[in-house]
Design a protein around this nucleic acid. Structure first.
Length: 654
DNA sequence: ATACGATTTTTTTTT
DNA sequence: AAAATCGTAT
């Protein structure tokens, strides 16, 4: 039996016990919203709700997994069967069943960012755009525009006028590209991340029987991080909750940091209007941070106009004010942070209770070097993700070819791995394979050699050798066998020739083989992989490493929902946070301030805000830069130094 | 025409 | 670190 009343505070208890019907929970940072959600799911199942009738939408797969693990700890294995995961994950699960209705086959592939960018680039090339004198925007940027239009259900014109005015002169071309992109994705039987949402919504809108099926199934719908949902997701929820009307959304408007992805935190404000007689709950008790840190954070976010009235109250006592430490340059900053980390460690703070947060990946480069130099163990939770690395994608391209013989992108990627086959020749060979009707066989046809040209012959012969083995070993549909086969047949050798640091890449491949063992079929393996970001974060159970304590380096975005005893924020300078580029967007300052808020509220006991006076690595290069406005605006001139919301340190030479 | 290596530039954030 | 650019070799 769960002792709800004693294991929850009064605010949380209300949420957990809230009767059926729509509910909005405004949950401040560190107020135990995960706890409330977890207990509510447990309570529902405990009271006899079938787990399959519960939908739990979260922001990361990791969050869903950890919540359901906690539910299981409360009520036992009854919890399995709950539909939990990210919107993309859930969308994929449902679309796999019904993709035929939308003109897709069941075995559609999912494009990651890089795949989508490449396909977009090829669309642009097909249309003969951007070959002229003036430089056409990069495919990635065009992709951002198209994606934002999809995710906000706005027209391209609207997006371009609102946020990308400098692209306005290209609007006609962007239209053509978007159209071709859509057609190509259908032709290739692929969906990008946006399609998983948009097509899911289309399915619910246009097919009454499907809508009824799922609206009927999901008796209870629970949504975490509601402030970061976009209108497509909000509409999907609308359709799913239409029948039972038991929808509980949890969020904090002050922590909305994904507007670049179409997230619209005003979804929170419009929730009570959309769901009449929705109950509204507030979780305002903060268990995480000391009062001085919380005071600092509260003061900061007050500079944002549009927000729900709420004030986080600390339950903890004592504690020191956040420390503002201006530094000469980034070299000194790296020295300071590492020095301080070592001191903290010596004073008994475990390394995994220390984090360094920053706005953009590249802000952490010097720090990483310094940490290596002084042998402080650390993990970086930003930058290129495991599954986006070139060598991992080479392998998955092979698997994709096996699952879908007409996966053009995968074929081209694999072809260009071989000697004397580049972009142009890969295109030619692909056309030949495609027109044959059976690409797998055409690879071995004698016409291929003539078609491809003489210099490519050795490469093609090598490829045939490898694929002969791979096709053979792929017969029983086992992912790890295919990967092993490809590695042994020749990719391992290829790797050592192609990359300088092939040793660490080989290490990754070993991890991939171990990882792949948990999958029953090639298709399962692929779709799970596409929606996964980090191998160790979301799936640490198979890494089998002795958990070593490490300092965490992370972007602020990736730090959402986490907490550490000591948090360092580096590069707290104008232009870095707020990031100069982000300020150009409408509502940019507010969003950056929310980021700052998220970062500061990660700290339990100590918070260091580092600022570099010179924006370069040796004090000579680089230009001078001001401290972040988010710090400056909190300094009250009328107050004595010891009354300011933060303490200023002077850093000597280190 | 094509492939490929060397050099320079540029980094927002992510499912 | 990866993409874009440029020059050279085939």
């Amino acid at each position: 039996m769960i002792d709800y009343i004693n294991e929850l505070n009064a605010e949380q208890y209300e949420v957990v016990m809230a009767p059926d019907g729509p509910a909005l929970v405004i949950a401040g940072a560190g107020s135990g919203k995960t706890r409330a959600l977890t207990y509510r799911v447990a309570r529902l199942i405990d009271e006899g709700v079938n787990p399959e009738n519960i939908l739990l939408a979260t922001f990361t797969n990791k969050a869903a997994k950890s919540m359901l693990t906690r539910v299981e700890a409360l009520i036992g294995s009854k919890a399995s069967g709950v539909w939990g995961g990210t919107f993309h994950h859930l969308g994929n699960r449902i679309l796999r069943k019904h993709s035929g209705l939308l003109g897709y086959s069941r075995s559609y592939s999912i494009l990651d960012r890089d795949d989508a960018r490449q396909l977009l680039a090829s669309c642009i090339a097909d249309l003969g755009i951007g070959t002229g004198k003036d430089r056409f925007p990069k495919p990635a940027l065009v992709g951002d525009v198209i994606g934002l239009a999809e995710n906000t259900r706005n027209s391209l014109e609207y997006i371009v006028t609102k946020r990308y005015q400098n692209l306005f002169k290209y609007i006609t071309d962007i239209h053509k590209i978007a159209l071709r992109f859509r057609i190509r994705k259908k032709e290739l039987n692929v969906m990008d991340f946006d399609d998983l949402l948009v097509n899911w919504l289309q399915l619910l809108r246009e097919h009454e029987d499907i809508r009824e099926k799922y609206a009927g199934q999901f008796v209870h719908v629970l949504v975490d991080e509601y402030q970061d949902t976009n209108v497509v997701q909000a509409e999907i929820l609308n359709h799913l909750a239409v029948l039972h009307n038991n929808i509980m959304v949890v969020g904090d408007d002050s922590q909305s940091i994904y507007s670049f992805r179409g997230a619209d935190f005003t979804n929170i404000f419009s929730f009570p209007a959309k769901y009449k007689n929705a109950r509204i709950f507030k979780l305002e008790t903060n268990y995480r941070s000391t009062p001085p840190i919380l005071h600092f954070a509260n003061m900061s976010i007050e500079n944002n106009e549009k927000q729900f009235q709420k004030k986080l109250k600390a339950v903890r006592e004592g504690g020191a004010r956040p420390i503002y430490a201006p530094m000469r340059d980034i070299t000194q900053q790296a020295n300071f942070v590492v020095q301080r980390i070592i001191e903290l460690f010596d004073a008994g703070v475990p390394l995994d209770e220390i984090a360094v947060l920053y706005r953009a990946h590249y802000h952490s480069m010097e720090l990483q070097m310094e940490l290596v130099r002084r042998r402080v163990p650390f993990v970086v939770r930003s930058g290129i993700r495991f599954f986006e690395q070139a060598h991992i994608k080479d392998i998955t391209a092979v698997v994709r070819i096996l699952v879908n013989p007409f996966d053009e992108l995968a074929w081209k990627r694999v072809l260009t791995l071989f000697d004397k086959i580049g972009k142009a020749r890969a295109e030619k060979i692909w056309k030949f394979l495609e027109s044959s009707g059976v690409p797998h066989n055409a690879l071995f046809s004698s016409d291929l050699l003539e078609n491809a040209g003489k210099s490519a012959e050795p490469g093609i012969i090598k490829m045939r050798e490898i694929f002969k083995r791979v096709f053979e070993d792929a017969k029983d549909d086992t992912p790890w066998k295919v990967i092993e086969s490809f590695l042994a047949a020749g990719y391992r050798d290829l790797l050592t020739v192609r990359y300088d640091e092939s040793a660490s890449r080989e290490d990754d491949l070993r991890q991939l083989v171990i990882f792949s063992r948990q999958f029953q079929s090639l298709a399962d393996f692929l779709s799970d992989l596409a929606l996964m970001t980090n191998i160790d974060e979301e799936n640490n159970d198979f890494r089998h490493e002795v958990p070593e304590q490490k300092v965490v380096l992370s972007t602020i975005h990736q730090a959402k929902g986490l907490e550490w005893s000591v948090v360092f924020m580096i590069r707290c300078s104008e232009g870095m946070i707020p990031l100069a580029r982000a300020l150009r967007e409408p509502g940019g300052v507010d969003e950056e301030r929310r980021l700052f808020y998220v970062a500061t509220t990660r700290a339990k006991d100590q918070l260091y805000l580092c600022h570099t006076i010179m924006d370069g690595n040796h004090g000579y290069s680089g230009k001078p830069c001001a401290p972040s406005r988010f710090i400056e605006e909190l300094a009250a001139p009328s107050l004595n130094p010891h009354e300011q919301p933060f303490e200023q340190w002077l850093i000597d030479e280190i």
